[in-house]
Amino acid sequence: MATTGAQAQTKAEVMHWWTSGGESAAVQELAAAFNKAGGQWVDTAVAGGEAARAAAINRIVGGNPPTAAMFNTSQQYLDIIKEGMLNDIDAVAAKEHWDTMLPAPVISSIKVNGHYYAAPVNIHMPSWFWYSKPAFAKAGITGEPKTPDELFAALDKLKAAGLVPLALGGQGWQEYITFYSWLAQVGGTDLYLKFFKDHDAAVVNTPAFRKVLTDFKRLKSYTDAGSPGRNWNDATSMLITGKAGVQIMGDWAKGEFNNAKQVAGKDFGCFPGFGPKSPYIIAGDVFVFPRTKDANAIKAQQLLATSMTSPATQVAFNNKKGSIPIRTDVDASQMDLCAQTGLAIMKDKTRQIGVPDMLLAPDVGGAVQDIISKYWNTPQSVDDVVKALQGAIKG
Rank of each mutant, 00 (worst) to 15 (best):
P276W: 09
M308F: 15
S74A: 14
A160I: 02
K217F: 12
A361D: 15
R351Y: 06
A201K: 12
N205E: 13
K243G: 15
E13T: 10
L337R: 04
A47W: 05
M308K: 00
D331M: 07
A2T: 11
F268N: 03
E23V: 00
G140K: 03
A167C: 03
P65D: 03
T313H: 09
K321E: 11
A47G: 04
G22M: 07
T44Y: 14
N205C: 05
Q302P: 00
K82G: 14
T178L: 15
K243S: 14
T189A: 13
D224H: 05
A2D: 15
N377W: 07
K254Y: 13
L239G: 06
W376Q: 09
A55N: 07
S20R: 07
E50N: 06
A52E: 09
R210N: 09
S307P: 04
G255E: 02
R230N: 05
S373G: 07
K95G: 02
P290C: 02
C270Y: 14
K320Y: 02
A6L: 10
F71R: 04
G21D: 13
T223H: 11
D370K: 15
H115A: 05
P276E: 10
M15N: 04
S227T: 00
G5L: 11
K321N: 13
K349Q: 07
G21V: 00
Q9P: 03
D234I: 05
D363G: 06
I123V: 13
K277G: 05
F274D: 01
A118E: 12
N35L: 09
M70L: 12
W376Y: 14
K197F: 03
A68I: 06
R327E: 05
M249I: 06
D149A: 15
V46A: 05
P145T: 00
V263P: 02
A244D: 03
K293A: 13
N318L: 06
D285L: 14
G5W: 06
V263F: 02
I240F: 06
A201L: 09
P120A: 09
E144M: 11
R327P: 01
A260Q: 04
W232Y: 12
L78D: 13
A295M: 04
Q340Y: 01
F216N: 03
D88E: 10
T223S: 13
A154Y: 08
R230H: 07
Q390M: 11
C338D: 08
K394T: 10
A137H: 01
S227K: 01
S74M: 12
N64K: 12
A94L: 15
Y116P: 09
Q75F: 06
I81W: 02
S74Q: 09
K387P: 05
S127H: 11
P379V: 00
D79M: 08
Y117L: 03
Q40R: 05
A55P: 01
I353R: 03
E96R: 10
L183Y: 01
P103H: 08
Y375W: 10
T147F: 11
K157G: 01
F196H: 08
H199C: 13
T306Q: 14
S127V: 03
S181C: 10
I60Q: 02
Q40L: 15
V112Y: 14
N205T: 00
N258V: 11
S237A: 14
K111A: 08
L30K: 07
Y375K: 01
A52N: 08
T292W: 07
S109F: 06
I177F: 07
K217V: 05
K95D: 15
G143C: 00
